[in-house]
């Protein structure tokens, strides 16, 4: 049996990404490959270029040099930074998703939980049957609230009545409702207390594995990377200093900087 060409080719592939922010080289010749269903963690300290890399891959930050290629569900390859804006916008809300550290940045706080989850379904270019069908949007919203362990009876409540952990889960439901193949996450568990963090990580891991979603996960928390990621990319001063399977990088770090990062983790 010949391998599925969609699985043997990377979903996202970046070459030679360089971004200068003023005099600082935020990214300096970064290569990234991401295969379907794979979770890639980008770790490094503050200011190492993690978030710039995430935004560049997502298409919201334009690189000075380098290219980001994305393979759509039909197997066509697009240059993310040369796509037309409506196309990129549609991509951002259908096949891709972005989970922010701060859920209030993504959610509409004046709109009910159900409206928040359903918004992506009502956006144009999302070519699913029933996009303009209230009943089906509501069904999808209820199903997704269940999926992220929010009581479906709270579907008409405003997000401001939700706790921090619930807000983050609501943001995840809102992002996954269109069944994206690739989700970008920027410190999704930052700012949550430890027990809520553990529950959220568990939820993300379950969903990602079951739905075979590829994830680019930015975190400074090595424990989060170990729990979720298949592969890891260690950044320092805009460069990738080490990359490999998560266990391999964490158990046998080669670079001095990675060794420092791993040894700085506090053990409970």
């Amino acid at each position: 049996m010949s391998p599925d060409p969609l699985l043997s080719a990377p979903l996202l592939s970046a070459r030679g990404l360089s971004v200068r922010l003023g005099r600082v080289a935020a990214l300096d010749g970064v290569d990234v490959d991401l295969w379907p269903g794979e979770v890639l963690a980008v770790v490094g300290e503050s200011g190492s270029g993690k978030t710039t890399l995430l935004n560049t891959l997502f298409g919201t930050q334009c690189p000075d040099r380098g290219v980001v290629r994305y393979r759509d569900p039909d197997g066509r390859v697009h240059d993310v930074h040369r796509m037309s804006r409506p196309m990129l916008r549609t991509l951002h809300r259908s096949d891709w998703g972005f989970v922010y550290q701060e859920p209030r940045q993504a959610l509409r706080m004046a709109v009910s939980a159900g409206g928040n989850v359903g918004e992506r379904l009502m956006a144009p270019g999302i070519n699913s049957a029933g996009a303009r069908h209230y009943g089906r949007i509501r069904e999808a919203a209820i199903a997704w609230l269940r999926e992220v362990e929010i009581d479906p009876t709270r579907i008409d409540d405003l997000p401001r009545t939700f706790s921090g952990g619930m807000l983050q889960r609501l943001q995840i439901a809102r992002t996954l409702v269109t069944h994206p193949r690739l989700v970008f996450m920027d410190e999704p568990t930052g700012g949550l207390d430890v027990s809520v963090q553990a529950r959220l990580l568990d939820l993300i891991r379950t969903l990602v594995a079951r739905l075979r979603i590829a994830v680019v996960l930015v975190t400074h928390d090595i424990a989060v990377a170990r729990l979720l990621a298949d592969r890891m990319l260690v950044m320092q001063a805009g460069r990738v200093v080490e990359t490999g399977l998560t266990d391999q990088v964490l158990d046998d770090p080669q670079e001095p900087y990675t060794q420092l990062l791993v040894s700085s983790v506090l053990l409970a």
């Binding site: 409206g115 359903g118 918004e119 956006a123 144009p124 209230y134 509501r138 579907i155 008409d156």
Partner: peptide, 18 residues
């Protein structure tokens, strides 16, 4: 410019839900 009127449907959704 992008004929992106999903937000208006969110408003209609909210009305029907409430």
């Amino acid at each position: 410019a992008m004929a992106d009127y999903g937000l208006m449907h969110v408003k209609l959704y909210e009305d029907i839900a409430r």
